[in-house]
C-alpha cells in the first residue's frame, strides 16, 4: 500500500529515525555532538542537502541511466554540500569553524546517499521531498538531543546561539561537570545508552 505524503514525512521522525532506528550516519553523530549547538547546526546542514538532493534526483530519475546512477548522485550531493559549506562560511562563520571537516564529509554520509538510492530514485517528487525533510528533521532532532545530553553532563550547561541557555549548576550547585561525556568515548557510551532507551520505548 503506498504511503501518503504525511506518512512519508512522519516516518523519519520515529520509525526510521536515522541514527537511532536505522543506526546510519554515525560519523557526524559521534563527532560533532559535543554541544547542542553543533548538533543542531550539523543537522540543519544535512537536512538542506537531503531535501535538495532528494528533490533533484527524483526529478531526474527518468534521465539518470541505471549504470552510472551512483556517480550522478554523488555529483548532485557534492554540489549541494559545497553550496552549504560556502553559505555557512558566508553567514555562520563561527559554527563553520567548529564543525570544520564534518561539513564536507556530508557527501559520504550514508543517510544522504541511502535516501537517494533507496527512495528518491524510485519515488515521486512530492514524496521524495517529504521523505528528505522528515529524515532530515529526525536527524537534526537526534543530533540536538545527543548534543544536549552530552553538553549538559559534560559542561553543566547548555547554550544554543546565545538565545537559549540552561545551567545545571543553578539547580544543583554541587554538580561537577562530568567531562568524560564530551570526550570521544563518552560519545559512544552516550549514544549506546540512548539507543538502549529508544529501543526500550519501541514503536
Amino acid at each position: 500500500m503506498p504511503k501518503t505524503i504525511v506518512q512519508e514525512f512522519t516516518k523519519g521522525l520515529w520509525q526510521e529515525l536515522p541514527p537511532f532506528r536505522l543506526v546510519l550516519g554515525l560519523c557526524p553523530v559521534l563527532g560533532v555532538t559535543t554541544s547542542m549547538e553543533n548538533g543542531l547546526g550539523m543537522g540543519i546542514a544535512t537536512t538542506f542537502v537531503l531535501v535538495g538532493s532528494n528533490l533533484l534526483i527524483s526529478m531526474l530519475r527518468s534521465v539518470i541511466p541505471q549504470k552510472v546512477r551512483i556517480a550522478c548522485f554523488i555529483i548532485i550531493i557534492a554540489a549541494f554540500v559545497t553550496i552549504v559549506e560556502l553559505l555557512m562560511q558566508a553567514y555562520t562563520y563561527p559554527l563553520y569553524l567548529k564543525l570544520g571537516v564534518f561539513i564536507p564529509l556530508i557527501v559520504v554520509n550514508c543517510i544522504v546517499l541511502g535516501r537517494a538510492e533507496a527512495f528518491a530514485y524510485k519515488n515521486k517528487i512530492s514524496s521524495s521531498m517529504a521523505d528528505g525533510l522528515g529524515i532530515g528533521i529526525g536527524f537534526t532532532m537526534s543530533l540536538g538531543a545527543l548534543g544536549a545530553v552530552r553538553e549538559l553532563l559534560g559542561h553543566g550547561s547548555v547554550t544554543v546561539w546565545g538565545d537559549f541557555s540552561y545551567n545545571l549548576l543553578s539547580a544543583f550547585p554541587s554538580f561537577q561537570p562530568f567531562s568524560f561525556m564530551v570526550q570521544a568515548p563518552g560519545a559512544f557510551i552516550c549514544l549506546g545508552l540512548m539507543l538502549c532507551l529508544i529501543n526500550a520505548i519501541g514503536d
Binding site: Q176, P177, F178, S179, M181
Partner: peptide, 10 residues
C-alpha cells in the same frame, strides 16, 4: 579510568 579522566582534581 573514566572517573579519573572526568574529575582529575578529586
Amino acid at each position: 579510568t573514566i572517573v579519573m579522566l572526568s574529575w582529575a582534581d578529586l
